[in-house]
Design a protein around this nucleic acid. Structure first.
Lengths: 81, 81
DNA sequence: ATTAAAAGTAAAGTTTACTATACTTTTTTG
DNA sequence: CAAAAAAGTATAGTAAACTTTACTTTTAAT
């Protein structure tokens, strides 16, 4: 999963330490998120998006995996019969 | 944090086992999320929202904590000078 | 009323987000 | 260029999301 944290942080002219401080996480967390070492929790994702005035989906890019809902439901239901 | 998983699952006439199967998690996970025992990861939150054709923010209700962005930036920057 | 299906509980184990600390490298600025 | 600020690396530890298994309670169907 990709994210626009670094880009958004820079456009707000903030350092990693400042962003970490605002979000009440450590600088390590910001570095790791920007570097893609791991993914934010739902809470932190929400706080980041809210801080930048965006939706979670606008900050975090979830690639692939577009499910055909109707088909998936049919298949899954069949599997459970 | 609240979520609308149970409501959405029922409106799709699915059991917990079926939803778990579709989302490729265990039934325990669905039960625990519906019961509010813990929060979904960002990944799972995305998969759930996508499955129901909604945004993460439409499925998960993040209460409180509305930050005044400009003020927070000013304060935080001051703290870092 | 029985039975079966669905929902729920409990607890131990794994994985991963996040912290804390300490040190190194890169970038910025005077 | 030199100093300071910012960014990055590494690693051990904690917390919480998620799994696995096994058993109990509630709801639905006949």
């Amino acid at each position: 999963m990709q994210n626009r944290i670094q880009e958004l942080r820079k456009s707000h002219k903030m350092t990693q330490a400042e962003l970490a401080d605002v979000l009440e996480v450590t600088r390590q967390t910001i570095i790791s998120l920007e570097k893609g070492k791991y993914n934010a929790s739902l809470f932190l994702a929400h706080d980041i998006a809210e801080f930048f005035g965006l939706s979670i989906e606008e900050v975090f890019i979830f690639e692939g995996g577009h499910i055909n809902v109707e088909e998936t439901i049919r298949e899954t239901k069949a599997r459970h019969e």
